[in-house]
Design a protein around this nucleic acid. Structure first.
Lengths: 156, 156
DNA sequence: GACATCTAATTTACATGTAAACTAAAATCA
DNA sequence: TGATTTTAGTTTACATGTAAATTAGATGTC
């Protein structure tokens, strides 16, 4: 009988650990290509549809435009993307892939690699149950947060 | 028949969103007490056992000692904790709760509030399934990461 | 005992998140 | 049409994460 105290587990903590682990897996995978996960997220949007605006990318990635702004500075420095003011409404800025950015589009499926590792030990039944449960949790939080803060993607 | 493309969902992304949402819930809850979630994590360790060293707190919170070092600077400024060099081995620094830090110990159960919201829409069966599945995923990643990076808690 | 090595914590450089102030352009309205 | 408001994006101040260099104290070996 070892002295062990059982605490009600913190789901939030478990989610943080898992989320962090998933980020690490992604970062490890991307390291060889010298892009960060945050940059990959932006690129993954542009690979699907080039020329998106900063605010669309902000919604897509779940980060504030302020964060995007600086991220795009670095991505522009590294010649992954290029910003172009929109003719007609110069408040908007279109973000376009450079040749170099386009050339990395084979990394589009990176997340499948991460999925594979995360789901490695779950059987088919479990996998089928997991998604709906995570979705339900997301909706609970969304509902709770109505009138409050927006959801935010957190990774690093 | 709306034009809809089904993508294989990214579990990592879903985990990030959920983890971020959980962090937001916690931060919202703590805002009134003017402590951050990172600070709460440190305090929650000290409420259980006061006088832990920086490296123990680092393991506990899943952050590097560098991050702890600076976090503790602010917590000391705000008079939540106090650092004391250990007699006998002066490399170690013990972190002790101040009266103010101790006085917040009723926040120990904050995570239950977050759990409650996250799990609001899951029935008993689902709740029973969730934990083991998340644990399995954590183990898959841990196993994968052996010889590589350590797990890291990511929140903000 | 002196020098090399290990260890705990800190410091620094840098990436990236937030909130809030600011800028510039477009839209509204009186 | 000129003033006000709204909108998109950027900038700034600050918190917090990492990696890598540094500091100081303990340990180990000759």
């Amino acid at each position: 009988m070892t002295e062990q105290v059982r605490y009600l587990p913190s789901i939030g903590r478990l989610l943080n650990v898992l989320s962090g682990a998933a980020c690490d897996l992604a970062e490890d995978y991307l390291r060889a290509y010298e892009i960060s996960l945050a940059q990959w997220v932006v690129l993954s949007a542009l690979w699907r549809k080039d020329g998106l605006s900063v605010s669309v990318l902000s919604d897509y990635s779940g980060k504030k435009t302020a964060a995007l702004s600086r991220l795009l500075d670095r991505m522009e420095e590294r010649e992954l993307v290029q910003r172009l003011a929109v003719e007609g409404d110069k408040r908007f800025v279109e973000v376009h892939l450079t040749e170099k950015g386009q050339g990395l589009s084979h990394l589009m499926d990176m997340y499948k690699h991460v999925n594979g590792i995360l789901l490695a030990d779950l059987d088919e039944t479990e996998k089928e149950q997991l998604l709906p449960m995570l979705e339900k949790m997301r909706e609970s939080v969304l509902r709770h947060g109505e009138g409050g803060q927006l959801l935010r993607e957190v990774c690093r």
